[in-house]
């Protein structure tokens, strides 16, 4: 299962095109739009994934839906995926593309989970602290997760800083074993 590797390669190809044209973030927005459409309309997803539907039909669907909404290279990218039979890896490619854009601009994404919504000024302070630690501009994504009970969990790539009450309680439980 080398699917992760494949997604990365496709994303890299698109990223190189985007770099030449000079607008990565526009492409990110468009890819997110396509992803959202696939999420919201499962029929579209199943039609595009189905081997029963003819490739020509798939392409015409894509064309009708997205020709107005995405730039030509992105549309071509979608056509290529249909030709190569790799549409099921689209989500992975979109994620890999975002990562590449972030890397290129010296930025980083961090997911911040907290038990209660974090006020704006705290978010900026947190972003600043994380940026200083990482030496990169950190962009925050926030999510409220009442399961944590208190505190927050920051996830950056495969690194995690657990400062939640839940994690602490778990640690205590572990120590008492």
């Amino acid at each position: 299962m080398a699917s992760e590797g494949i997604a990365k390669r496709y994303a890299l190809a698109l990223f190189q095109v985007a770099e030449e044209k000079g607008d990565c973030w526009q492409y990110v927005k468009e890819l997110n739009g396509v992803e959202k459409a696939l999420e919201v309309y499962p029929e579209l997803k199943s039609a595009l994934w189905s081997p029963m539907v003819d490739d020509g039909v798939k392409k015409s669907i894509l064309k009708q839906l997205f020709v107005e909404r995405v730039s030509p290279p992105v549309l071509n990218f979608l056509f290529l995926l249909i030709d190569k039979g790799r549409f099921e890896l689209f989500a992975g490619m979109a994620a890999a593309f975002v990562k590449l854009c972030l890397e290129a601009s010296g930025e980083m994404e961090a997911m911040v989970e907290s038990a209660v919504p974090i006020p704006e000024e705290l978010q900026t302070a947190l972003a600043q602290a994380l940026s200083k630690k990482k030496g990169k501009q950190v962009k925050l994504k926030t999510r409220v997760n009442p399961d944590l009970l208190g505190g927050l969990v920051v996830t950056m790539g495969d690194q995690m800083i657990d400062m939640s009450l839940k994690g602490r309680l778990k640690e205590i439980q572990e120590n008492l074993k």
Binding site: M1, E4, G151, G157, D158, Q159, M160, I161, D162, M163, R168
Partner: peptide, 26 residues
């Protein structure tokens, strides 16, 4: 005392036949 400690983690993407494939954990 909340210790700020960065840990490396991974996510299970496939499990079965008593093996697991994990994403992350670089």
């Amino acid at each position: 005392q909340p210790q700020v400690k960065e840990v490396n983690f991974g996510t299970v993407i496939q499990v079965g036949d008593s093996i697991a494939r994990i994403f992350g954990l670089s």
